[in-house]
Design a protein around this nucleic acid. Structure first.
Lengths: 232, 232
DNA sequence: GAATTAAGTAAATCATACTCACTAAAGCCA
DNA sequence: TGGCTTTAGTGAGTATGATTTACTTAATTC
């Protein structure tokens, strides 16, 4: 009575449903091991199919990763438009963008980490849809800055590209310990700090010099007047 | 007269010299193909030895990469100390750091790109000597900022970590098109832009508050003068 | 000049993304 | 109902490239 080698019945699912399972498995395992160390074989097993079946849906491992990240970016882009609606003023809008970006990161640190550390080093990243999506995403901030310059709220010599890179690059670095699971993140505090830094700068304001001299002179005049009034 | 299969004499070199050849070859080929696509076999051939010999000097491919980058970082760190000597004032010192960092990038875009895109995604990066070197490097800026806060030159609520991340993260993003060979880079312009942004911010100054106080005080004095003058 | 160290090699081994040639379930339509 | 087409799925490869093993031989040391 040797156990008959009956293959368990092949379970077939509609395309969309199976893809959903694959993507869940991929996300789980990319998170667990990182992109490179995650094995297609393990993803396939987790999704309940054979290794080869993955390639019926995705042209390669990288394509599977990009599919996950494109979905994420599309959601983030929608959030931007939704949350910016009705917000007036360059500084307020910049604050919303920073806050919202941080919130997206806190919600999906696994995807964020994949984006930061895996995607951009790949050959031809700059020819992918994902790159195009990322551009559209950062463009929202660039447009806000340009509008702010035009309205006079922001300095006319502001480089919008520099602002974009300082904000998104700054966040990327600032958020890394959190993505590595080494710290928590306080979105309100961080967004305030960053927005203040970008808007006001870090130097102590020295409108001081002129203003102080003016104020001092005025006080002397006032004192004299007061003195006169007291003496009369 | 078949050509005898004489193996060409094995050329032996002293350790340091051979390592130098390997590292030159590695740098060349990492630059040409990127880290992942560069083949150990090709590096070995270029350095004039067999594949296996590489492993007499480096424990693996990653170790070879780190060796290149550690050298680079050590040079950059020396540059920082040298160029900061005698520079006074937080803002000036920040400017020097930005300028110097940009210069290091322009001099070795190949190494910089490897650092940005390959190294930090690797498992256990945060346990490597290279990470430690990078920390020491960015710490130079953090110390400058802290000193500036203590001296009153910088706002007391400045987060030195945020400044560090905004500057190095901003530069990383700003410099990417150059690293991809898609644009040139103007160090003077870029360092001025970034330093101004970080120090002054992008909002048009609203001397507003001080001005309001001054104006209010002046009005009170004037009222009294008018009153006196009118009554006499 | 024997013993030891260090530079070097050829030929495996191993891991894993991806391909090939095929099977069979589902849906369609007469 | 039964033939036809489409498509989910598979098992058994192939290919590639980093790393290991077991060995050879030139230099160095005393």
């Amino acid at each position: 009575m040797s156990p008959s080698p009956e293959k368990r019945a092949v379970v077939r699912l509609p395309r969309a449903e199976r893809m959903h399972q694959i993507e869940s498995a991929a996300r789980k395992l990319f998170h667990k091991h990182g992109y490179t160390a995650a094995r297609i074989s393990e993803i396939a097993a987790d999704a309940g199919i054979s290794e080869a079946a993955i390639y019926k849906f995705y042209s390669n491992k990288r394509d599977l990763l990009h599919t996950l990240l494109k979905d994420w970016y599309m959601g983030m882009l929608d959030d931007f438009y939704e949350k910016l609606e009705g917000v007036e003023g360059a500084r307020n809008r910049i604050k919303v963008i920073i806050w919202q970006h941080l919130k997206s990161i806190r919600e999906c640190p696994d995807l964020c980490r994949l984006f930061y550390s895996e995607v951009r080093s790949m050959p031809d990243y700059y020819d992918t849809e994902l790159y195009e999506l990322n551009r559209r995403y950062t463009l929202v901030l660039v447009d806000v800055v340009k509008t702010g310059i035009a309205s006079g709220e922001l300095r006319p010599d502001t480089s919008s590209a520099m602002v974009r890179d300082v904000i998104f690059g700054g966040i990327e670095h600032r958020v890394t310990p959190f993505l590595m699971g080494r710290s928590e993140i306080d979105i309100d505090e961080m967004s305030t700090q960053l927005c203040d830094l970008v808007c006001q700068g870090i130097c102590t304001p020295d409108a001081g010099q002129d203003m102080d001299r003016l104020m001092a002179r005025l006080e002397r005049v006032a004192d004299r007047l007061d003195g006169k009034a007291g003496g009369g």
